[in-house]
Design a protein around this nucleic acid. Sequence first.
DNA 1: ACCGGTGATGTCAGGCACTGACATCACAGT
DNA 2: ACTGTGATGTCAGTGCCTGACATCACCGGT
Lengths: 190, 190
Amino acid sequence: MNRWEPNARGRLEAAALDLYVERGFAQTTVAEIAKQAGLTERTYFRHFADKREVLFGGSEELAQLIAATIADQPESAAPIDAAAAAVEAMGDRLQPRRERAVRRQGVIAANPELQERELTKLASMATTIADALRERGTPSPTAGLAAETAIGVFKVAFERWTTAGTSSDLAQLIRDSFTDLKALLAEVSP
Amino acid sequence: MNRWEPNARGRLEAAALDLYVERGFAQTTVAEIAKQAGLTERTYFRHFADKREVLFGGSEELAQLIAATIADQPESAAPIDAAAAAVEAMGDRLQPRRERAVRRQGVIAANPELQERELTKLASMATTIADALRERGTPSPTAGLAAETAIGVFKVAFERWTTAGTSSDLAQLIRDSFTDLKALLAEVSP
DNA sequence: ACCGGTGATGTCAGGCACTGACATCACAGT
DNA sequence: ACTGTGATGTCAGTGCCTGACATCACCGGT
């Protein structure tokens, strides 16, 4: 194996997912992941900040998608609608990767440390949404609230998606969940 | 110092908060915390699962409060109202501890690892709320959505509370945030 | 007053995540 | 060929966290 084999990062991601699925997150060492990818432990830590991060690669890309989607919304769109559009766009982006997403989610569901990291990523996306809303003039507290709400809806829909049959459509589940939420808040006491 | 000095757990919590505030989370070792509390590192790890957990002591107690509050709601209360009552009860519980909460929040705000743990605790509370709602007959997806929404509101209100003046009332801020959210969703496109 | 059980603490050894410092290698442009 | 640049390797070290076992204070029974 040449020292300069291309795509070291991708090889590390693949090796890690395989090993985490095969023998579990806690039972896998970073040294093993690196070895399977034909690299050393030290190199792993040059590509990923810690043992968990290797499972959360595309986050920055999704953040960009969110920001772009909200920026593209017409001015007339209400903040919550713009936020909804952003998470729907995420749904569309994730849809083709459903099989990998399910596999990954299995690993995450089996390990609290990984769930913790996932929550961090979702919170970061909420921040991205809120910032993008403020960028187009939404008042700060409103933006935060809309973002939190949108991410809450996303979490519920994503959970439904990964545990449902192959044919389910994430973006549609997101729309359904939003509808549910509106009904929920409509029956609230004034 | 006697080996059996009482309240080892409390001493560890106090020592940890002091040291984390004084020199930062990363620059503090568990051994130092233990020493300051008159204990050994090994004993620290018998009381707390890891270096972060020492800052999140009252979580189980809050979970109980949540469950009890929701169980006490009249049957006529809508799910979202029951969830709101739960987070308001949390607000009342935290209000007397505001000073400590602000201090703690400063440490957490300065460290991503601690923010990660905080998100985990909040997610756990969302689960507690959802379970309590299901217990009183709320359909499962509705319960999850109401819980996520209530926690989202709590986060926004808590943020306002810790960054605002001394006189602010957390429970009131929670109610205000809920009102804001209703307004937000009322202007949504149908 | 002794005595054994019980639970909290101490001691010791070790694995593994993660980091800093420095060496080494492949490749690109000159 | 020469040299700079960036990715990788090597090495040593710190600190988090755990298992196994010893030790200590207290409590209840005798």
